[in-house]
Simulated scan of single mutants.
Amino acid sequence: MQATSIHAAALHALMIADPDDKCRATQALLADWRAGRLAAVPGADDAEPVVEAGRPPRPELVAPQAVPLRKAGTREGHAALLHAIAHIEFNAINLALDCVHRFRALPADFHDGWLVVAAEEAHHFGLVRARLRALGFEYGDFPAHNGLWEMAAKTAHDALARMALVPRVLEARELDATPPIMARLKAIGDTQSVAVLEIILRDEIGHVALGDRWFRLLCAERGLEPEATYLRLIEDFDAPRPRPPLHLEARRAAGFSEAELARFGAPGETRP
Rank of each mutant, 00 (worst) to 15 (best):
A17V: 00
D190R: 09
P226S: 09
T229R: 15
D45P: 09
H87V: 06
I6E: 09
Q2M: 11
A209I: 00
K186T: 02
A262T: 08
N94F: 03
P179M: 11
V169M: 08
P59D: 06
A266P: 04
S5T: 13
T229Y: 06
P167K: 07
L97V: 07
D32F: 02
Q27C: 03
P143R: 09
L97G: 06
L231Q: 11
Q65T: 09
P64Y: 10
G206V: 05
A156K: 10
F142Q: 10
A172H: 02
G54H: 01
T178C: 11
D109P: 07
A209C: 03
H124F: 15
I16V: 15
K71D: 10
E269M: 14
G147F: 03
P179S: 10
L175I: 02
A8I: 08
A25F: 13
E48L: 15
D21P: 01
G43D: 02
A183G: 09
D46C: 11
E120H: 12
A79V: 07
L95D: 10
D109H: 13
E204Y: 07
E269G: 11
K154F: 00
D176W: 06
A262W: 00
G211L: 04
A9P: 06
H124T: 15
A31R: 09
A8C: 04
R129K: 14
H111I: 12
H157S: 14
E60N: 05
L218N: 01
R252W: 12
R131E: 12
R202K: 13
R131T: 07
R129H: 12
G73P: 01
F256K: 08
E204F: 01
R173S: 14
K71S: 09
